[in-house]
Design a protein around this nucleic acid. Structure first.
Lengths: 165, 165
DNA sequence: ATTACTGCAAAGCATTTGCAAATGC
DNA sequence: GCATTTGCAAATGCTTTGCAGTAAT
């Protein structure tokens, strides 16, 4: 195997995330009697490489050719594992296909999605989490996680609509 | 056409919802140069008849035979229209297939979904909506709607797990 | 050596769509 | 009468799966 494959040239910041996240995934895999494989490292690296929000299928396409080839099936399987490991989060809301984002080094936040242009805008408000936690308590519900998505029109799009239409 | 088909025997409360919701759908259809058809009335009636939360496919199956037959394609098409009309709301979060609920006579609320048994628990907290509205304002985002889903373990299931497991 | 993982391609499955017949306007 | 809608069945497209070969432990 070539050296390029073993360690890609990545922007420092991304490399740092990968370097921190990968050992966590390794721990998770070992705890679950699963194996630490090439393919899993490549998928994790790709997830942390260029994606704020991405869908499984696009990721699979990106890895379908070139040096770091990983098959579609394996990408889906690995994303599921990463989700279990808490390294990735699904946002299966807007479209037919699942959208993900990585959660490592990425503080808790929610999303607004523009109906027009499809852009994802991140926002956070810790009071939201608190309110949800207290609602859960009221209903004797043990929260594992929650998801908040706001649908509407982003600033850019409604400015365009007001201005020119 | 038989009289039974023209007006089903429904519990009073449900009939009341249908009687209120149907004219709204009719208005919506007329405004959009769409036609007021048998199939659309049957789907709307079915939606208001037995479902708190339901998935499109189940609804389609229920209407696939019997007197009030409506084809699968039409059910999907009609649900999309009802969503546009604001009579139905999607909760496309938990599963591969879309879950819906009707919104008419059903005050704004959110959902907790049990990982174990899949139960939907409704809850509401108007402060959540207020926080989201103000976050939207901060980001110059025009909110159309939002969705909050909490995942975890319901009271029944974690009591079982604690008690017997 | 043993067992898990990967790649591939085929299967699954919810949803969408094309088209001829039916229906609302 | 004309345009939309419906039903049917076939197509679509994301995701999952079976299996034989490959890699990790």
């Amino acid at each position: 195997m070539s050296k390029a494959q073993e360690r890609q040239e990545l922007p420092e910041e991304i490399q740092a995330s990968v370097d921190e996240a990968w050992p966590l995934f390794v721990d998770f895999l070992k705890e679950n009697q699963a194996r630490v494989t090439q393919a899993r490292r490549i998928v994790l690296t790709q997830v942390f490489s260029r994606h704020d929000h991405f869908c499984a299928d696009d990721l699979a396409s990106e890895l379908s050719s070139g040096l770091n080839h990983v098959s579609r099936g394996t990408v889906y399987r690995t994303l599921a594992l990463m989700e279990e490991a808490g390294l990735v989060r699904v946002i299966r809301d807007t479209d037919v296909h699942a959208h993900y984002e990585h959660t490592f080094n990425h503080p808790s936040h929610e999303h607004m999605i523009c109906d027009q242009c499809g852009e994802f805008i991140e926002f956070s408000d810790e009071n939201l989490a608190l309110l949800i936690a207290s609602a859960s308590r009221r209903h004797d519900f043990q929260e594992r996680t929650h998801r908040i998505v706001v649908f509407g029109t982003c600033e850019k799009c409604h400015r365009q609509a007001d201005g020119t239409a």
